[in-house]
């Protein structure tokens, strides 16, 4: 049994431009990029083959920047979640996404962890992807063929699998300023209060019309399928209705039905299904309440 990190053969590279990073990756298929390395190092410790080169993305300014042009936020793929949580604009416009970002690991991990790493690691239980997805985040991807932009929902394709091609990295995320009376929420179930991995995660974004009915809804679930699951039936049940009573019951039932979970050491199929419904319903309620408060303020 080999348990320890064997750093002896590995090399370290710290490119300062996206082009340099792409070149490094293109020249060596066994190179691995990392932002915080909060997933990569435990994986190597657990016996995953060592990369030949560890490519540190944190020295590339663009990958750590957080900015906005007034209508769209641009968040570097390697920006520490601690910075994201401390960003007033993001916290006001995407409270659920920011909450999800703040749930990753501990304070120490927060200074390293990032949206790009969280998404590209492609763990079904990752906390930020459901929230990125309900907010229609786009990932800007750079590679040997230049840059392309895809929906964040299209990056992870299965546990540990992504649509990123050879030599491609996520550079940044784009998030459009949400419309009026819109808010999101994220809830996760862990047996402890922190330092744990989601047994179920649920993100919701709700837009209300002037009467308090749901004008737009997005619900996404984590840890209940190989990739994040959207719940169109629940979204449809909400549109045009007040987010309460029987409508919420329909959300819960649709969310439970949309899951395709596994039995493992962290949860059972039956438990994950039941709790996914509960968390989806609660996340919708919280998001709707937040959206309504925005309406009150405006």
């Amino acid at each position: 049994m080999g348990y320890d990190l064997m750093l002896s053969a590995m090399r370290y590279a710290s490119p300062t431009t996206v082009a340099e990073a792409v070149d490094l990756l293109g020249s060596d298929p066994a190179a691995r990029v990392y932002a915080g390395a909060t997933d990569l190092i435990p994986q190597i410790r657990a016996g995953r083959p060592e990369p030949t080169v560890m490519v540190d993305l944190k020295r590339i300014d663009r990958l750590c920047a957080i900015g906005s042009n007034g209508s769209t936020y641009t968040v570097g793929a390697a920006a520490p979640t601690a910075d994201i949580c401390g960003h007033d604009g993001l916290a006001a416009d995407f409270p659920g996404l920011v909450e999800a970002s703040g749930l990753i690991g501990s304070d120490q991990i927060q200074s390293r962890s990032s949206w790009g790493g969280n998404l590209a690691n492609a763990s079904p239980a990752a906390d930020t992807p459901p929230s990125l997805i309900v907010n229609d985040a786009r990932a800007v991807i750079a590679g040997p063929g230049g840059e392309r932009t895809v929906a964040a929902a299209d990056v992870a394709t299965g546990p540990g699998q992504t649509s990123l091609g050879p030599g491609e990295i996520i550079v940044e995320f784009e998030l459009d300023q949400p419309p009026a009376r819109t808010a999101d929420a994220y809830l996760r179930l862990i047996p402890r209060t922190e330092m744990d991995i989601a047994v179920v995660g649920a993100a919701a974004r709700i837009t209300l019309d002037g009467d308090g009915n749901v004008a737009a809804a997005a619900i996404a679930l984590g840890a209940v399928a190989p990739t994040v699951v959207r719940v169109p039936d629940a979204e449809a049940a909400l549109i045009g209705n007040l987010p309460s009573g029987e409508v919420l019951g329909a959300v819960e039932a649709a969310a439970a039905a949309a899951t395709n979970p596994i039995d493992d050491k962290r949860g059972t199929v039956a438990y994950r299904r039941q709790v996914a419904g509960v968390l989806a319903r609660r996340a919708v309620s919280i998001a709707a309440e937040r959206a309504a408060q925005q309406g009150d303020q405006s």
Binding site: P191, R192, T193, E194, M195, D196, I197, K265, R266
Partner: peptide, 27 residues
């Protein structure tokens, strides 16, 4: 929360503080 989880061959499945859940301070 604490328990050893073994697979059917007797191999421990949760040999880390991530999945062997002792309470954290906020618990």
């Amino acid at each position: 929360n604490e328990e050893y989880i073994y697979d059917s061959d007797g191999v421990m499945e949760n040999p880390s503080f991530l999945d062997y859940r002792v309470p954290v301070a906020s618990d």
